[in-house]
Computed example of a mutant assay.
Amino acid sequence: MSHDTLSDVLRGVRLRGAVFFNISGNSDWAAEAPSAKELVPMLMRGVDHVIEYHAIAQGSCWAGIPGGPSVQLFAGDVVMFPHGDAHVVSSAPGMRGDGDFSWFPGVEAAGQLPLRVAYNGSNVLLPPATQQSEDADVNIVCGFLGLDLQPFNPLIDALPRLLHLRASEDDAWIAKFTQQAVAESHAQRPGGEAMLARMSEMMFVNAVRRYADHLPAQSAGWLAGLRDRFVGRVLALMHEQPSREWTVDELGRLVGLSRSALHDRFVQLVGVAPMQYLAQWRMQAAARMLLETRATVAAVALDVGYDSEAAFARAFKRVVGKPPGAWRRERDGAAQ
């Protein structure tokens, strides 16, 4: 099957990245980030969800979710928080910071991004009081990835709350990403912001692929389904032609399973029935068209497999709570 389902989902949920911070730490220090729900209005307008990541350029530190998993990080490692949990990056495990980001909108408005922040013990120093030092115990590049959760994003639930990518000779790209991100953010050359954003997106895709490659054999979830020889082909077929009037019988015949066997295998791995998944994905494809094109609601309805605008509007409202036209206007306004 030639269709790249992961790329299709990443396009559908409109992944976009940005790098906002270069952090240095000395002595006993802790930086605490609030949850994604609190960060979205401050960091990335017009998105449903923000994933924060930290790439270690120099030194070592700890990262963890209070009351949840934590991990020690070394130069070249990357850690990300796919579910948007509040978390702490610190010089030792179990530490806490203040989690106050109220100063950020003023810094953003002043055009001071990417921002350099120095933690020296309990003191937090912002420009122009300090600059990141090569003599710091640790230097970190911190970035954010925005994406849509609504109407349907099958990827996020398939990822852990904390995703750790270790520096590896077999995957030197991560270390090169960290080095290049530091160089670009320091140089502040024309086009640097766009380059850092694209690099962040590439790093996330690489992280998802590495995580999927190392899933245990008996795993469940959307990524496990993608990897399965039968369910993966069914997902590819539905993503390649979402407007087609698929049936479970036809999909089973195409991949070599009975209707009941395919249904059970799909539910076991993906968590929903095949036709339910198709209906949800059609809504996500429609949402992308509504936001990225000026196509009429009627045209969007036909493109995702509905014979009438009214039937599509009812289905869309069931999923997102608003008719497609009203939802489009609301999202357009939020992105301004």
Score class of each variant (00 low, 15 high):
residue 267 V to Y: 07
residue 267 V to L: 11
residue 267 V to R: 15
residue 268 Q to R: 15
residue 268 Q to D: 14
residue 268 Q to K: 15
residue 268 Q to T: 12
residue 268 Q to P: 03
residue 269 L to W: 01
residue 269 L to N: 03
residue 269 L to K: 01
residue 269 L to V: 00
residue 269 L to D: 03
residue 269 L to C: 02
residue 269 L to R: 02
residue 270 V to I: 09
residue 270 V to P: 07
residue 270 V to D: 07
residue 270 V to Q: 08
residue 271 G to Y: 06
residue 271 G to T: 06
residue 271 G to A: 06
residue 271 G to H: 03
residue 272 V to N: 02
residue 272 V to L: 06
residue 273 A to H: 05
residue 273 A to Q: 06
residue 274 P to W: 08
residue 274 P to L: 05
residue 274 P to K: 08
residue 274 P to F: 04
residue 275 M to F: 05
residue 275 M to K: 01
residue 275 M to T: 02
residue 276 Q to V: 13
residue 276 Q to E: 12
residue 276 Q to R: 14
residue 276 Q to S: 14
residue 276 Q to H: 10
residue 277 Y to K: 11
residue 277 Y to E: 15
residue 277 Y to I: 07
residue 277 Y to S: 12
residue 277 Y to G: 08
residue 277 Y to N: 14
residue 277 Y to V: 10
residue 277 Y to R: 12
residue 278 L to Q: 09
residue 278 L to W: 04
residue 278 L to C: 02
residue 279 A to M: 06
residue 279 A to C: 05
residue 280 Q to L: 15
residue 280 Q to H: 13
residue 280 Q to M: 11
residue 280 Q to F: 11
residue 280 Q to I: 04
residue 281 W to K: 11
residue 281 W to F: 14
residue 281 W to C: 09
residue 281 W to N: 13
residue 281 W to I: 13
residue 282 R to F: 02
residue 282 R to L: 00
residue 283 M to T: 02
residue 283 M to L: 11
residue 283 M to W: 02
residue 283 M to H: 05
residue 284 Q to T: 15
residue 284 Q to L: 15
residue 284 Q to K: 14
residue 285 A to V: 14
residue 285 A to N: 11
residue 286 A to W: 01
residue 286 A to S: 08
residue 286 A to P: 12
residue 286 A to Q: 06
residue 287 A to D: 08
residue 287 A to S: 15
residue 287 A to K: 09
residue 287 A to G: 11
residue 287 A to C: 08
residue 288 R to A: 10
residue 288 R to T: 13
residue 288 R to L: 09
residue 289 M to S: 12
residue 289 M to D: 11
residue 290 L to T: 06
residue 290 L to R: 06
residue 290 L to W: 03
residue 290 L to Y: 02
residue 290 L to A: 13
residue 290 L to N: 05
residue 291 L to Y: 12
residue 291 L to I: 14
residue 291 L to A: 13
residue 292 E to C: 07
residue 292 E to K: 06
residue 292 E to Q: 10
residue 293 T to H: 05
residue 293 T to F: 08
residue 293 T to G: 09
residue 294 R to K: 10
residue 294 R to E: 09
residue 294 R to W: 05
residue 295 A to G: 05
residue 295 A to L: 13
residue 295 A to K: 09
residue 295 A to R: 11
residue 295 A to D: 13
residue 296 T to I: 04
residue 296 T to P: 03
residue 296 T to V: 03
residue 296 T to R: 03
residue 296 T to L: 01
residue 297 V to I: 05
residue 297 V to C: 00
residue 297 V to A: 04
residue 297 V to D: 04
residue 297 V to N: 01
residue 297 V to R: 02
residue 298 A to I: 01
residue 298 A to P: 01
residue 299 A to N: 12
residue 299 A to Q: 11
residue 299 A to Y: 03
residue 299 A to F: 07
residue 299 A to K: 12
residue 299 A to T: 10
residue 300 V to W: 09
residue 300 V to L: 07
residue 301 A to R: 01
residue 301 A to F: 02
residue 301 A to V: 05
residue 301 A to C: 04
residue 301 A to Y: 04
residue 302 L to A: 15
residue 302 L to V: 11
residue 303 D to P: 00
residue 303 D to G: 14
residue 304 V to H: 09
residue 304 V to W: 09
residue 304 V to F: 09
residue 305 G to S: 07
residue 305 G to Q: 00
residue 305 G to W: 01
residue 305 G to F: 00
residue 305 G to I: 07
residue 306 Y to W: 08
residue 306 Y to E: 02
residue 306 Y to L: 06
residue 306 Y to Q: 03
residue 306 Y to V: 07
residue 306 Y to G: 01
